[in-house]
């Protein structure tokens, strides 16, 4: 099983598409860092307008945490586009290439093969989010230094320096969960077809449709909202509230985990029964 996972990762990281996400995240993080390096002060001043007097100024607000928070907010909605590029190809890529015939006539079970695919999909998500964390938090802290975090959510909160890092770790962990759900959706589509384009587009279509449904202010559609997995993606935000609502986080995480388990189960069932005709 370990051999299979290592082989899957080797194959994955020999493909160009795997680096598209990593490169895109790097570019965007760098652009935001550069932009804020030059204009960040104005922005902070703008946001602090009118409330400056009500706070005792606690130090450098244009710090690494602020930048990381900003990058997370801006990027997280786009990362699904990047992970499905890899997820959609995981199984369909073998069909397109005709390599199923050689892979599946080795002394490994289909259950092992599909599990290795899912695990490497998960590892890709972890790598991507870790890379984002490293660039946006690690590098930003190096460039901009530390300081208290100005967080603008339901109200304006300023977190003390020693009360921040764990919030980021929680948010990144939650982002991994959300993105794993997405890559698993693209893998189930990937198991059904022989070309990666279909799964990529289908997964994006589902996300977009669900997000639009959630946004339409009609009672019936709003009542559906809790049942759409997309509604549970944004819980990472919760870590930046003054009072973190763990009940809400665990509820949403539970729903995502249920999706992940169901997607894995159904895909595995389909895959084991499937006739390999490619």
């Amino acid at each position: 099983m370990n051999t299979l996972i290592i082989i899957e990762l080797q194959k994955m990281f020999k493909k160009w598409r795997t680096y598209i996400g990593i490169i895109a995240i790097s570019l965007l993080a760098i652009i935001i860092q550069v932009a804020l390096y030059f204009t960040g002060k104005n922005m902070i001043d703008f946001q602090m307008r009118g409330i400056e007097q009500s706070f005792v100024m606690v130090g450098n607000l244009l710090n690494g945490y602020f930048i990381a928070r900003m990058i997370l907010t801006l990027l997280i909605i786009h990362i699904p586009f990047l992970v499905v590029l890899v997820g959609g190809d995981l199984l369909a890529g073998e069909a397109t290439a005709g390599t199923y015939r050689m892979l599946l006539t080795r002394p490994v079970s289909r259950l092992q093969v599909i599990s290795a695919k899912f695990i490497s999909g998960f590892i890709y998500v972890v790598v991507l989010i870790f890379w984002m964390a490293l660039l946006s938090l690690g590098v930003s802290l190096l460039i901009f230094g530390t300081g208290p975090l100005l967080s603008i959510g339901s109200g304006i909160v300023i977190f003390a320096e020693n009360d921040i890092l764990w919030r980021f770790l929680g948010a990144y962990a939650y982002a991994i969960l959300s993105m794993t759900t997405i890559i698993f959706i693209s893998i189930i589509f990937s198991s059904l077809v022989e070309n990666a384009i279909g799964p990529i587009i289908s997964t994006m279509a589902i996300i977009i449709v669900f997000l639009i449904i959630s946004a339409i202010p009609v009672d019936f559609l709003q009542s559906l909202k809790p049942y759409l997995f997309t509604s549970h993606f944004t819980q990472w935000n919760n870590f930046f509230n003054e009072e973190v609502d763990y009940r809400e986080i665990f509820e949403s995480a539970g729903i995502l985990l249920a999706h992940i388990a169901a997607l894995y189960g159904v895909t595995t069932y389909i895959f084991i029964k499937k006739d390999i005709l490619s």
Binding site: K11, G98, R106
Partner: peptide, 20 residues
């Protein structure tokens, strides 16, 4: 059919590992 983006050597190495 093989993994086109890998060398012949790497292809054999992967398939050999899978065959134990």
């Amino acid at each position: 059919d093989f993994y086109l983006y890998l060398s012949a050597y790497k292809n054999l190495e992967i398939l050999g590992k899978l065959s134990g």
